[in-house]
């Protein structure tokens, strides 16, 4: 795939970790918006589906010097050498040229899970079973997002259906540019502490672009050179240092 192609817009996020209190609102809103089913009967934290997952990281000291930080981690939407795009044998993953969003098209996916292995952020999830909701709860599903079946991979796409709706709204009024207020992913909208800024990173006037350039901003595993479009911020040194590690692994390893 053409990963070097520069997208028209580069949508991204800046998550202020000093404002995240780990309430889980983003994860709940994400599941509601994207028709992510409840855990299958035997699903665990290794086999679940959490497009947005909050990891609790620790500073490694013991009580009472211990400190914690919550890392909400979704797909990081890598812009360069995107690992999942380059390994997919099916072309089920590409980078949307208009938004820079890394896609995942379940009907095309053959379920080899190569992309899951390739993703350094553990942000891709596999449907080990068919989705199931309690009886009649399909009436509470979002019609703008298709329901996935067993045997395919899924992940965050920055609530792409909301982008599509924003484009349609703009088009209905004869415009080609969307109103940024119309495209806000569910997790961003749901965050009670406004810890997540979202928008076009290439628009120098946008809040997200300003925040991504803040001195306390960093990206996870920046050393890999995958140019993620999700930035994190923290004034705490140990939290910023966590960015160089595998946060998901570290946070699980540190807790029993």
């Amino acid at each position: 795939m053409n990963t070097a192609h520069k997208p028209k817009a580069r949508y991204g996020m800046v998550i202020d970790l000093d404002r995240c209190n780990g309430c889980g609102g983003c994860a709940a809103a994400c599941a509601v918006e994207n028709n992510v089913p409840p855990a299958a009967p035997k699903a665990s934290d290794r086999t679940g589906l959490t497009w947005m997952r909050i990891y609790r990281a620790e500073n490694g000291r013991s009580f009472p010097e211990n400190r914690t930080a919550f890392f909400p981690i979704s797909c990081q939407h890598c812009g360069a050498h995107t690992p999942c795009v380059s390994v997919c044998p099916q072309n089920a993953v590409d980078i949307n040229p208009e938004t820079g969003v890394v896609s995942q098209i379940p009907p095309r996916c053959l379920g080899c899970r190569y992309c899951m292995t390739a993703c350094p952020f553990h942000a891709r999830y596999f449907n080990w079973s068919d989705p199931e909701w309690p009886r009649d709860m399909e009436n509470a599903l979002n019609p703008d997002v298709s329901v996935r079946m067993r045997g395919v991979v899924e992940k965050c796409n920055f609530c792409h259906s909301r982008w599509q709706a924003a484009v349609a709204k703009a088009a209905a009024n004869g415009k080609r540019e969307i109103d940024p207020a119309d495209y806000v992913p569910a997790c961003v909208e749901a965050c009670p502490t406004e810890a997540i800024a979202f928008g076009n990173l290439d628009d120098p006037r946008s809040e997200v672009s300003r925040q991504s350039r803040a001195p306390n901003a960093f990206r996870l595993l920046a050393k890999l050179g995958t140019d993620p479009k999700v930035y994190y911020r923290s004034d705490r040194d140990w939290v910023r240092r966590m960015g160089d590690t595998d946060v998901a692994y570290e946070s699980e390893a540190s807790r029993g």
Binding site: G24, A28, A43, D45, T50, R53, I54, R56, R255
Partner: peptide, 10 residues
């Protein structure tokens, strides 16, 4: 879907 905060994550 609260399993997202319990069983499917720590």
């Amino acid at each position: 879907v609260m399993t997202k905060l319990y069983r499917e994550s720590g």
